[in-house]
Amino acid sequence: MNRQLKNKLFTYATWIAVVLSTTILFFLFGVILWNGLPAIDLNFLTQASSNFGASGGIIYQIAGSVLMVLFSALICLPIAIGTAIFKSEYLISKKLHAIINTLIYSLNGIPSVIFGIFGLILFVNILGMGISWIVGSIILAMMILPTVTLSTYHSINSIPTIYRESSLALGLTKWQVIRKVLLPQGFSGAITGLLIGVARAIGETAPIMFIATAFSGVAFPSSFSEPVSTLPTHILALAQQATNPDALQNAWGSSLMLVTLVVLFSISALIFRLKHQTISKR
């Protein structure tokens, strides 16, 4: 009886935890939707911001965010694929493998603000690139490198050895095997990883706020060396004027837009992965 009672109490405890967690989590979604929806209309999405963001829209912020993550993906992709191929096809030593893994996981764990100050020192100051969006892209590329590398690695590594051996037996060189046999499959892993990485990168504020963005008066950049405005830094600027209801309203609108973009990228990653899985099963 005592044991039964303990079991009941334990079950109640898990129920309480679940109700609490669920309430919190739904509150978050609810708040973003509830406050964000009234702020969004066609004008908001298609106009430039004015009055320090308190009025006008967010078209340049959307453009800036998308531009920056797009380039970060382009920078990251070749390096990630190369590293994944090395890990899967060239690396034999178990010890070296463990070391590289540790480095990749470490890179993944580095706090985002550290990336920001690193970029500030190296790119903005030492290399003199100034506050420009391309620096932001480079830094974001570093941040998503582990995700893309690991995702690519897993899809290359899951190809059965028999494919490699039978292609080599046909007289293909190692590089030909990699290009013709492994890369087509590895590429889909890379795209999945990129979509996941971009979903994360587009929401990052701390790594780009000192090195790539300006808070107001920015339009679409005409060169690599100009700052842009992005959704997350725009939200930051508006959040700091939270006493102004117009600014706050636009902050919520921008937040909803940002979450929508994040979700869009995440769902594309999911769909891409599922679709790819069914193909390889066939």
Partner: peptide
């Protein structure tokens, strides 16, 4: 091409591995 491929792969890995050190 085999050599170029190998060079590419090694370079990428070096870059990935040394970002942490560089920081």
């Amino acid at each position: 091409t085999n050599k170029v491929g190998k060079f590419y792969v090694y370079t990428s890995t070096l870059i990935s591995a040394f970002v942490v050190f560089l920081i």
